[in-house]
Computed example of a mutant assay.
Amino acid sequence: MLGDETVRLFLAGLLMMGSVLALSAQPLQVPIRKDCVEDGQMACYATSSVRLLSGAGSTFLAVRTGPGIEYEIFVRLNNGDVVTVITSQGVWLGVELRDGRLGWVHGFWLENLAG
């Protein structure tokens, strides 16, 4: 049978894990719809790489919860990082990160690789 201290530590661990999971799953303020139907003729999405970031100016590409600078940054990308472009709103692109999360980036900083 488990003692009170063991149960208390177990429950504290579960609470901490829940906090970590909540932080890693950033909800988007502007959703990105992935509703492309592949027909074998054309790619649905384009793979792009972060480019042109320099130490003199921007040193990272902000991934935001919506298409604009007023939205919260939840990830920072660096030169060479690869994303999949899902959609666009003006100069803002809805992207999927390598870990499956979705977010918005300014399109100027991406170079199309394929797709």
Rank of each mutant, 00 (worst) to 15 (best):
A62Q: 01
A43M: 08
F60Y: 13
S24T: 05
T47Q: 15
C44E: 10
Q89Y: 15
D81A: 04
P27A: 07
V50F: 03
G80P: 09
M42F: 05
G115Q: 06
A114H: 11
G68H: 03
V82T: 08
E38S: 11
D99K: 00
G80E: 12
L2N: 14
V95H: 02
R51F: 15
V50Y: 01
C44S: 10
T65Y: 05
L110W: 05
G94L: 00
L77F: 02
G107M: 01
I86R: 05
S24F: 04
L15H: 11
V20K: 05
R51T: 14
P31R: 08
T65L: 05
R8S: 15
L11R: 12
L14K: 11
L11Q: 10
W104M: 02
L61N: 01
L61C: 02
F10W: 10
K34M: 11
G68V: 02
A12Q: 06
L23T: 07
I73T: 09
G66H: 05
N78L: 14
W104N: 00
F74Y: 02
R101D: 03
V63S: 00
V83C: 02
W92D: 15
T47K: 14
G100K: 04
W104L: 02
M17N: 13
N78A: 13
I73V: 12
F10I: 12
V83Y: 01
L102S: 07
P27V: 06
V37W: 07
R98A: 14
G107P: 01
S58A: 13
G66M: 05
G40Y: 06
R101H: 04
T59I: 15
L110F: 07
P31W: 06
R8G: 09
L113T: 14
G90I: 02
C36N: 08
G55M: 12
L15Y: 06
L77S: 01
G13Q: 05
G3M: 14
E70K: 10
S49D: 07
L53K: 04
R98V: 10
R8A: 13
V95S: 01
I86P: 03
R33H: 10
P67H: 03
L14M: 15
G57V: 07
L61K: 00
L2Y: 14
Q89T: 10
A114L: 14
T47G: 15
R98W: 13
R33P: 14
I86K: 05
V82Y: 01
D81H: 03
G3Y: 07
G115V: 03
G66F: 01
D35M: 06
S19D: 11
R8K: 11
A62H: 02
S19K: 08
R101L: 04
T6I: 13
L9T: 11
S48W: 03
S49M: 10
L102G: 04
V20S: 09
L14Y: 05
Q89H: 14
I69W: 09
